[in-house]
């Protein structure tokens, strides 16, 4: 059994004069959440459309579970596009059954599962309502259900949280995590880096049609470590300045009534233990933590650097 559920090799896609994807390679491990990141117009949607076989690549190959990607894989993939909608005049239940049948599931199979989800989200009263009678958030819930209804092996969510209030966002997040626990592989495309940090195991960052960064989230964050620490102590900031530890450099320090918050930068390779050992004799520490780079910062710095390089 291959470890990767989806592999894309050397994908190229061109629209007239515009090169949308240039030698893109990704590998999505089974049972993980894979973040597909990138600024607007980078080529994420083009890649997602190719994975969904909406369009075909000009060059390159795709493999699903070790097999060449083909039409029979359509029913094993669930897709929630960014630009999404439903037939406004159609009834909710009828519409869900229609769309799931298009995926290749029979009506008989689909009805109990659909009922289960309707119960779970407490929306069974909507079955015979027309979509236009529902609010946008309600419609998003229905779309989520329709996407996962046929129990696909691979789920692709493109900006799944747009349009949800915080409560429903959490609901969907926990459902996504449950799906992952049940073995579903998920490709997750978003601009919301907070949710990437929360959910993703692996990521690929696409900028200007190329993958400029990919790999395991933890490793990437490790790679982009700045060795900065935040120390909260009972002493004034003056005391900290007296600490003699030559690998350490104070970046900022703020005095707040009876405590001080200080940021320090250490030389690469310095461990937290080393720093603590140097600090402990001098100050009483209330809290201590390493400032791990946020995905947001990594994203911005990489994309900006890449854009400057190309210009």
């Amino acid at each position: 059994m291959p470890m990767n559920l989806l592999v894309a090799e050397h994908i190229e896609k061109r629209y007239a004069a515009h090169l949308a994807l240039d030698d893109v390679n990704i590998a999505v491990k089974k049972g993980t959440i894979f973040g597909l990141l990138g600024p607007n117009g980078a080529g994420k949607t083009s890649l997602i459309r190719i994975i969904n076989q909406i369009t075909g690549p000009d060059k390159g190959k795709l493999f699903f579970n070790g097999e060449k990607l083909q039409n029979s894989h359509v029913k094993k993939i669930g897709y929630l596009p960014e630009e999404r909608g439903l037939y406004k005049k159609m009834k909710v239940g009828e519409q869900a059954l229609y769309l799931v049948q298009l995926k290749g599931m029979s009506k008989k199979e689909a009805i109990p599962i659909l009922k289960y989800w309707f119960e779970k989200f407490d929306i069974h009263t909507w079955w015979n309502k027309k979509v236009e009678e529902l609010s946008k958030g309600m419609q998003q819930k229905i779309q989520f259900i329709i996407t996962v209804l046929h129990k696909p092996e691979l789920l692709i969510f493109d900006e799944p949280f747009s349009g949800f209030d915080p409560i429903n966002t959490n609901l969907i997040k926990s459902e996504i995590l449950k799906l992952k626990d049940n073995g579903t592989t998920i490709i997750f495309s978003t601009h919301n880096m907070e949710s990437v940090e929360e959910l993703c195991d692996e990521i690929a960052l696409i900028n200007k049609s190329r993958v400029i960064l990919d790999g395991n989230m933890a490793e990437i964050r490790d790679r982009f470590r700045t060795f900065e620490f935040e120390i909260v102590s009972e002493e004034s900031t003056e005391m900290l300045k007296g600490v003699s530890f030559d690998k350490m450099q104070i970046i900022s320090s703020v005095q707040k009534s009876n405590q001080s918050v200080t940021r320090v930068k250490t030389e690469p390779g310095t461990t937290a233990n080393e720093l603590l050992a140097a600090l402990l004799p001098h100050i009483r520490i209330r809290s201590f933590n390493e400032i791990i780079p946020r995905m947001n910062d990594i994203f911005i710095s990489l994309v900006e650097a890449d854009s400057n390089k190309l210009n």
């Binding site: 076989q53 897709y79 999404r84 909608g85 769309l99 298009l102």
Partner: peptide, 9 residues
Amino acid sequence: RIVEVIISS
């Protein structure tokens, strides 16, 4: 915007 859902099937 339902079209993208449908043509993925």
